[in-house]
Design a protein around this nucleic acid. Structure first.
Lengths: 225, 225
DNA sequence: TATAAAAGATAGCATTGCTATCATAAATAA
DNA sequence: TTATTTATGATAGCAATGCTATCTTTTATA
């Protein structure tokens, strides 16, 4: 049996649903490849069209602009990650173990999930690390937020925040700690590979060290005391 | 007596030193205003030239491109902040008090420092919050790093890391904790104002709560145990 | 006063970001 | 089957951006 995941996407993100057509799925697939390869700044619809073998105008029929594409694929990732979390924490009763699994999931390079056809999760993870915060660090963040574009990120934050509260019901900053875990899982990875002297893992360049750091950080804050 | 601060800037950042001429100082001053106002994406040399009352070509005589301008003003800020830290921690022997002062400095909106003529630190602080990470989240990060463009940030990270080690000599992650403090001081501020449900300070929107969160986070990790 | 350095004034050109139009192919309904 | 939506392909075009070049005028300094 071949399982397929469907992530429900916000309809305001696109003009035409890219999941419904071959060209649409190609736009997603090649956007991920191109953004991962060239970075978001150098990513243009022209180049994307050439990669796919279609025209610029073709892309514009699906997405208003490249920023929407970025939000689309990043939202997809957060949705997929929330699914992964619910999967690996299923039947786990101890919230501390749950939270450790979440941290590991966030800080570990993912492999391409064969359950998702046209999405390469490994490239997507790299995009989250290098381009993730550019989704909201803009002047239009307020407008985009009205469209609910950041709901997947907020949902993820709420899920992690709730696990934190399970660990320590009286903890005062579950959401801020959740965003700290998420952002630092990615920033420490970026620093480790690109500006290693900003971290303590510069030599080993090993993700397991980031996990140890985050575990230490988080469980110092929320241990019973 | 009127005191003036001079921050030593990396010579590779500019073509002609903007501090040496009226036009140069205007470029810095108006870049800060324009980036704070329109965001880095919409910031162009054309608009900047119009603001100043000069021409695009005039700006290009000072800076190769807008990304160098961003790195310039951000580097300036880190340099200035390191000076502020050395100032407020001077004669303080207790490292815990030192670190608390640093956290407060990082998380508090600064007022315009009259000791610096053409730089508005308050606007600069907003830029750090919204645009700061765009300085390094690029494909050229490696190239830029070779030019030592991130030295001011690294120096700041080292200073804070050393204070952390003074607090707890055996702590394993002083640099990663330092970058966590720096980045989270700014990200929590951005979230609080723009995506409040990602934080626990959405209602009060008060910087003092961010300080409390960071203090809790940091001193749980490095308290004697 | 000579002359070098900085700034102003234009021009130009490739790329980007976006919209519009018309023709054709593919899917679906009458 | 034919009719007709619907999706795609093929071009064109235009304003804005990013950057370089050249020539003149002003300002600073030797």
């Amino acid at each position: 049996m071949k399982l397929q995941i469907q992530i429900k996407m916000n309809e305001d993100l696109f003009i035409r649903n890219p999941e419904h057509t071959e060209l649409g799925r190609n736009i997603i697939k090649h956007s991920i490849q191109l953004i991962a390869h060239t970075g978001f700044e150098a990513f243009t619809f022209k180049k994307l069209a050439e990669d796919i073998g279609t025209t610029e105008a073709g892309i514009y029929r699906y997405f208003e602009n490249k920023h929407r594409v970025l939000i689309y694929i990043i939202s997809w990732y957060w949705g997929w990650l929330e699914y992964q979390i619910s999967f690996v924490t299923n039947n786990v009763s101890d919230p501390v173990i749950k939270l450790k699994k979440v941290i590991k999931l966030l800080a570990t390079t993912v492999e391409d999930d064969t359950k998702t056809n046209y999405v390469n999760e490994n490239l997507l993870h790299q995009i989250i690390i290098s381009e993730g915060s550019k989704a909201y660090l803009t002047k239009q963040v307020g407008e985009d937020n009205k469209h609910q574009f950041f709901k997947p990120y907020k949902d993820l934050c709420a899920v992690i925040g709730n696990i934190i509260l399970e660990c320590k019901p009286k903890y005062k900053y579950p959401r801020s700690l959740a965003t700290t875990i998420i952002e630092m899982a990615h920033f420490q990875n970026f620093f480790m590979h690109n500006l290693p002297s900003l971290t303590d893992f510069g030599k080993s360049k090993s993700e397991s060290e980031i996990i140890l750091f985050l575990n230490d950080l988080v469980f110092s804050s929320i241990k019973k005391s």
